[in-house]
């Protein structure tokens, strides 16, 4: 069977009422949200750092990064510990929903109209039969926007 080639495992997270997916291979674990220590003069999108069992890792708030909305912590808030390009970081989300297996034929590219214009925040769109589509995030792009926020803090804030 070709099951291994045709399925992708996604961890689904909810932020500001929308569901986003991240490839499970990029996730180390999911932990409860803990108090984030702000870093002074850090890039705008870096909320601060947390101590994860003796390792200090930076934390980015997904809602802030995507929607420019300030974080709103609740009992469901989680931090997903990710590894991107050999870098470990925490991504704060409003809730961790589920881990789903999707068939490759259900995965679409983002609209060409958007990608041609240089859009790369969402890597793929997963169709689901009974719910709204899951947007698969490009974590590399997320890191890039963190760097950009460090370089052009004013333009990011305005945008």
């Amino acid at each position: 069977m070709t099951g291994t080639e045709t399925t992708v495992d996604l961890a689904c997270f909810e932020t500001r009422g929308r569901v986003y997916g991240i490839d499970v291979l990029q996730i180390r674990e999911i932990v409860r949200c803990q108090e984030v220590t702000p870093l002074p003069r850090a890039p705008e999108l870096i909320e601060g750092v947390i101590d994860l069992r003796g390792v200090v890792i930076p934390v980015i708030d997904l809602g802030h990064a995507l929607c420019k909305e300030p974080a709103d912590e609740g009992p469901e808030t989680r931090i997903a510990v990710l590894e991107v390009d050999g870098m470990v970081l925490g991504l704060r989300v409003d809730a961790a929903v589920d881990v789903i297996s999707v068939e490759a034929r259900d995965v679409d590219d983002p609209p060409a109209l958007a990608t041609h214009a240089g859009y790369d925040t969402v890597r793929a769109v997963v169709r689901r039969a009974d719910a709204a589509p899951v947007l698969v995030l490009s974590l590399e792009h997320l890191l890039e926007s963190v760097y950009r926020s460090a370089l052009h803090p004013s333009s990011e804030a305005e945008a």
């Binding site: 961890a11 009992p75 881990v99």
Partner: peptide, 20 residues
């Protein structure tokens, strides 16, 4: 139950990473 849910999620992630 909340904690169990979180553990189950992490277990699901590890299981997915383990592949088949």
């Amino acid at each position: 139950a909340d904690e169990t849910s979180l553990l189950a999620l992490n277990a699901a992630i590890i299981a997915a990473q383990a592949g088949e």
